[in-house]
């Protein structure tokens, strides 16, 4: 069976509970099952990327460890939140909303987080 394209749509900021980590864990698990995993940071999800260098480094380490290579950040979500100038690691590709919509249309499954 060929791999499924699964997009994890991350639309929430960092929370106090375990949920923030759990959303990444499920994506890492899908990658471990050799599925084509996409992470999409939209809306308040972009705040998790602006939570500070330590948080971002920890997230990057997890992503690199799991070999997830399709990571998208919506430019409009950044701009709406005053984060247009946020410096992100190379692994994170900033896309226009239309490009995000086009990618979403190519997915077999979308999992919100």
């Amino acid at each position: 069976m060929s791999a499924k394209r699964i997009m994890f749509v991350l639309r929430n900021g960092k929370t106090a509970g375990p949920s923030t980590d759990e959303r990444i864990e499920v994506a890492m698990m899908a990658q471990a099952f050799d599925q084509e995993v996409h992470l999409a940071y939209l809306d308040d999800g972009v705040f998790t990327l602006a939570a500070g260098p330590d948080d971002l480094a920890a997230l990057l380490a997890k992503i690199e460890e799991s070999d997830i290579s399709h990571i998208w950040v919506e430019q409009q979500s950044l701009a709406e939140r005053g984060l247009a100038d946020l410096v992100l690691p190379d692994l994170f590709a900033v896309l226009d909303r239309h490009q995000i919509i086009e990618l979403m249309g190519q997915m077999h499954m979308v999992i919100p987080g």
Partner: peptide, 16 residues
């Protein structure tokens, strides 16, 4: 958590 991914692979639709 692998059980979720396995179900996702088998299923035609995932509804959250």
């Amino acid at each position: 958590l692998g059980q979720l991914i396995e179900a996702t692979i088998i299923a035609d639709r995932l509804v959250t």
